[in-house]
Simulated assay, not measured.
Amino acid sequence: MAIDLHFTKGQGTGNDFVLYTDALGENDVTPQQVAAICDRHFGVGADGVIRAVRSEHIPDGEKALSEDPAAEWFMDYRNADGSTAEMCGNGIRVYTRYLIDNGLVDLEPRETLAIGTRVGVRDVQRSSTGFQVDLGRWRLEPGDPLVRARNLQVARPGLGINLGNPHVVVALADAEELASADLAYVPQVEPEPIGGVNVEFVVPHDPLIKDGVGRITMRVHERGSGETLSCGTGAAAAALATRHWAGRGAPDIWRVDVPGGTVGVRMFPTEDGEHVSLSGPAELVFEGDLALA
């Protein structure tokens, strides 16, 4: 179906998105249209597309409302290849900026905005660096995956971390090895996860901990999008994995450097288990109009 689309381009530490409003859920885009929008040569170019839709108008949004009636808006996120994704940590911060700047919501300091996603409601607050999102409970996945990446000579052990979307985190020896990995090619994970997985490659800083804050550098290959300059849930997964490897005494506050900038990760206890939050910038870059076939 052909549609005329007024869009906004936004980014969070270089993880970029095309956003548009479809409050009543009447102008969904097809996977082919998403791929065309995200094409960096023939389209706008982005890591994904985010549709702003009122939760009451789509089935996934109705589930979010049953969890939290305050989740008026649903983040309908699609990867660059058109496939649906459960969540996006950078995307939800950019989405929050979009809702505020377009007058769709108000969010004062210390207030919390509930946003519906495919893995449930996520709470967002303003932070000193932009916005902070509670990514919810996380879990360590069973198994011992092996990861092969182009230009890395041997398969590396990975650690499975689930934040509502799946991740496998791999530790590398140094910055030179991290730079050598060719993430234009999809890393091969054994056993192969059903539905794919995001793969993060991590190098700890030296020293790992400074002033009580853990520090790591990360690159990522996102399923459905390829290598991106940043991945919010991936940064959280990388920090969680590094804390796991570091053992007792490792901090709960982390700085994660990615090619597109720096994000903050914090682990904290709640009544339903440990949660992890992500903080970082969110910027709207430009607006435009598209005629989609």
Rank of each mutant, 00 (worst) to 15 (best):
D106W: 12
P281H: 11
Q32C: 05
V169H: 14
M218F: 10
S83C: 11
M218H: 06
D76V: 15
G48P: 12
R219F: 04
D39V: 14
L183F: 04
L107R: 04
E190F: 08
L240R: 02
A293Q: 07
A291H: 14
L292N: 05
S277C: 08
L240T: 08
P69C: 03
T262L: 15
N162D: 11
T21H: 13
G160Y: 13
P142L: 05
G143I: 06
E62M: 09
T270L: 04
N151F: 11
V147T: 15
V199E: 03
E62R: 12
T217A: 14
P191W: 07
R126G: 09
G10S: 13
R93C: 11
K210R: 09
G158A: 07
T8K: 00
S279V: 07
D206Y: 15
Q33W: 08
G212S: 14
L152A: 00
T262S: 09
G280S: 10
Q153V: 12
G226Y: 04
S83I: 15
G61L: 04
G12H: 12
E227P: 12
V119P: 10
D257T: 14
G89N: 08
E141P: 07
H244P: 12
A80Y: 15
I92V: 15
I209G: 03
A155Q: 12
D28V: 05
D252A: 06
D28M: 10
E141K: 11
V18I: 11
G234P: 09
D47R: 00
A293C: 10
A23E: 09
R215C: 06
G116H: 02
